[in-house]
Computed example of a mutant assay.
Amino acid sequence: MAYIHDLRQKVGHMRLILNSASGALLNDQGAVLLQERADTGGWGFPGGYLEYGESYAKCVQREYLEDAGIHIKPVKLLALQDYDEYTYPNGDVVQPINAFYLVQATKQAPQAPKPSETLRTKYFALDQEPPLFFNAQHAQMWEILQHN
């Protein structure tokens, strides 16, 4: 987040277009792993903003490790989302361009997620949608999973 932090130091709460990547990891029963976010509370798909020079695929791998403590690889691009706006509790407004991937775990031994980003992770059946963070974007991702 150093890139975004440095950018915000220069532009304050100005509206920004930012690139992000997130992923859906399904277990053997078809339930999806979500993170309960430390910053906003709600549940969401692990993911986050690209650092300068980073690809969407590398970003989702890094963010999954930070948010869920799991090494993953992107398997399939499910959607490119580019029309929603989100206002963070501190007043920052963003239009994220998000690459949403189906991902697969690559290592069995997970590590602890960053406590500054994730309160906990949990698998949810696709017919039991929890209260979602950034409801428009994450609700769309939820719907995409239900139809794949």
Rank of each mutant, 00 (worst) to 15 (best):
P46F: 07
F124P: 02
M141H: 12
T118R: 08
L33C: 01
R15T: 01
R8I: 09
L77Q: 04
F133I: 09
D67A: 05
I17H: 11
E51A: 01
V103Q: 08
L132A: 11
L18H: 01
Q104I: 12
I97L: 14
Q9R: 14
A136F: 11
K114M: 14
Y86I: 14
L126R: 04
F100R: 05
V60R: 02
L80H: 11
S55E: 01
F133A: 15
L119T: 06
D39I: 02
Q140W: 10
W142T: 04
T40F: 08
K10V: 10
L16R: 13
I72N: 06
Y52C: 00
S20D: 02
E51G: 01
L132H: 12
C59N: 04
A24P: 06
A99V: 11
G44R: 08
A57S: 02
G30K: 03
S22N: 12
A31Y: 09
L126Y: 06
L7P: 01
K73Q: 12
P74V: 00
H138T: 11
Q61C: 11
A24L: 02
A21E: 09
P74L: 04
H138L: 05
F45D: 04
A125N: 10
G42Y: 03
G12V: 12
Y88Q: 13
G30A: 00
K114H: 15
S22D: 13
F124S: 03
Y52P: 04
